[in-house]
Write a protein that binds this DNA or RNA. Structure first.
Lengths: 171, 171
DNA sequence: TCATACTTTCAGGAAGCACTGAAAGTATGA
DNA sequence: TCATACTTTCAGTGCTTCCTGAAAGTATGA
């Protein structure tokens, strides 16, 4: 078979790592994720360490984070004691998991903080313009929160693909 | 007037900075942006330096980046030689600018790289599953690219708010 | 053209975040 | 219960990114 496949996998791993770090996600975490996505079989910690040239501690930490995000599962491989890891293979599910976690970790706290700002800004006339902008911003962030929520509920709710189809049709 | 307004502005600045840094955006850049959003009047470099306690070089760099992103404008204040800065006040426009830039800087290059991976992966049977996953991923990223593109075109295209309204109605 | 008032650049330093590796912890089967 | 095979933790280190401040650059009006 063509030798390019391995090069392609490597390129994929580094592309994914690069992209993730621009979106505030740990580069190594994304590389581990990409490696698992690119691999048909489940991989052990040692295989991941070897493939990416990272330490045991680092591998462990990032694998745990990926499991927390719901992007990777631990799997038992017949008879073996060692743990193996396997990524969620459905990219749409993957996207839903990411939406759910970012909503929870990054959007919801901001909504709370903006509400607090609004409360703190009081009712004075000098803050009227500020309050208006805060209100509009809060509205926007709530919309984003709503959209991510819909994405996150995907498994129970098929509305998102319909909307996307519709959006393309309307364009 | 209530003394809380200034506290509210400060909280807003730090909230915005915190959020941005979790999404891969320079924290100081976001704080400058927030300061300008919270301020009714245009501000000079010196005022920004004083308000945020940052150096001239830092202020200059981040202001330029904000201007590049289309989130902040330089404005002339009658007779004065010094430059003043003012943020885009419409939050929806702001959102469109961010969508446009992130699409251009971060999504489009990834699409190119994934296409290259797919080409490089060849046609061998051993890479069939990898190719399948790459294809699905590419599809997903292209969808995101499309959505950001629609957002970015907002000024010429009112489709996005309609879709959002619809999404809420369908939920 | 020069003095002035302001802006921009960039080398070096500081801060924060990620990584290593060895030691401690845990589960398994004999 | 112990030996073994593996996983997890975390203090110290390294690396990247960000920031500073002084020097160079630029525009303006006299």
């Amino acid at each position: 078979m063509s030798a390019g496949v391995e090069k392609a996998r490597e390129r994929f791993v580094s592309t994914w790592g690069e992209m993730a770090s621009r979106w505030g996600i740990n580069k190594t975490m994304a590389r581990v994720h990409a490696l698992l996505m690119a691999s048909d079989a489940a991989l052990s910690t040692d295989e991941i360490m070897a493939a990416l040239g990272i330490s045991r501690g680092n591998a462990n930490m990032n694998l745990r984070a990926l499991v927390d995000w719901g992007l990777v599962r631990r799997v038992a491989v017949g008879g073996e004691r060692r743990e193996y890891f396997q990524s969620e293979k459905d990219v749409w599910n993957m996207c839903c998991r990411i939406a759910r976690e970012r909503k929870k970790r990054e959007i919801e706290p901001v909504i709370g903080a903006l509400e607090e700002c609004l409360r703190e800004a009081g009712t004075g006339k000098d803050a009227a313009a500020f309050r208006k902008r805060l209100t509009e911003l809060l509205d926007l962030v709530r919309t984003l929160d709503f959209v991510l929520g819909q994405l996150a509920r995907q498994e129970k709710n098929a509305v998102m693909p319909k909307v996307l189809t519709l959006l393309k049709a309307m364009a």
